[in-house]
Design a protein around this nucleic acid. Sequence first.
DNA 1: TGCCTTAGTTACTTGGAGGGAACCGGTGAC
DNA 2: GTCACCGGTTCCCTCCAAGTAACTAAGGCA
Lengths: 138, 138
Amino acid sequence: MTASISGEVDAMLDGFRRAIGIEPDFDNCPIRGVLDRIGDKWSTLMVLTLALRPHRFGELKRAIPDISQRMLTQTLRDLQRDGYVARKVFPTTPPAVEYRLTDLGRSLMVPLAGLVDWAVKTRGEVEAARAAFDRENV
Amino acid sequence: MTASISGEVDAMLDGFRRAIGIEPDFDNCPIRGVLDRIGDKWSTLMVLTLALRPHRFGELKRAIPDISQRMLTQTLRDLQRDGYVARKVFPTTPPAVEYRLTDLGRSLMVPLAGLVDWAVKTRGEVEAARAAFDRENV
DNA sequence: TGCCTTAGTTACTTGGAGGGAACCGGTGAC
DNA sequence: GTCACCGGTTCCCTCCAAGTAACTAAGGCA
């Protein structure tokens, strides 16, 4: 780990320094906007699943078995509202509805992949840190 | 946006496909572990603040004015437990406690920078999508 | 006639994240 | 003596994300 991890990080920190001064407005913060989505219980899993291929409503329910129907609908609506997911209705009977990632949704996969990659790589370190902490703090 | 965004994404999706089959265990999922941290209200802001420079407890409270003392302590303990933040006590009177990012914590800045960068870049698109959605759905 | 399907919606409930405020120990300054 | 300072801890309360379960529409099928 060098003193400066990467130019990208430095650029972000500059942006962050400015942000603290200029915009202490939490609700309009673009970072908070995406973090709230990333951070909720199902969004990421849903985006990841839809990245594999488009899914119908029932397919998603089967792909993510422990999600409730209520949260499935709500998460899809939220993702759709933000433009990450497109909803296409086929007026058949019974109705068929297909959900697929938009270009915007697919573009989220890039930073998300970075995060997932980091999580997998540092998994062991984090577990070790937790074990050490719990040992020291009875 | 091409058919395949990047090799990294493809690799992640492969990993994800395996994960759905092998490990449907939510609590031990390394992705969920980092997402829960990233997703909570104060962790990211705290990591970003500590990335600027080490801070004392009171400095953090002043840097993030609307955090409660309770959540400041709790978030710091969580970050410390996972090995992202190091806590150093100076046995002076009154006591001084310094918090700084560990190497592991600094390494998180890389994927985090990617996410922040993406959030800033796509901010307009998301806002437009929301406005369009709200217009169509009364 | 009644039961199956898909894709939802609605009402009720609960667990946990987070907020507010009071309290604490040790010490130096007034 | 008591006030302030720092870095917490503790208790209590509130609010919201999420879960559960029942209900819906429109048609196919037996």
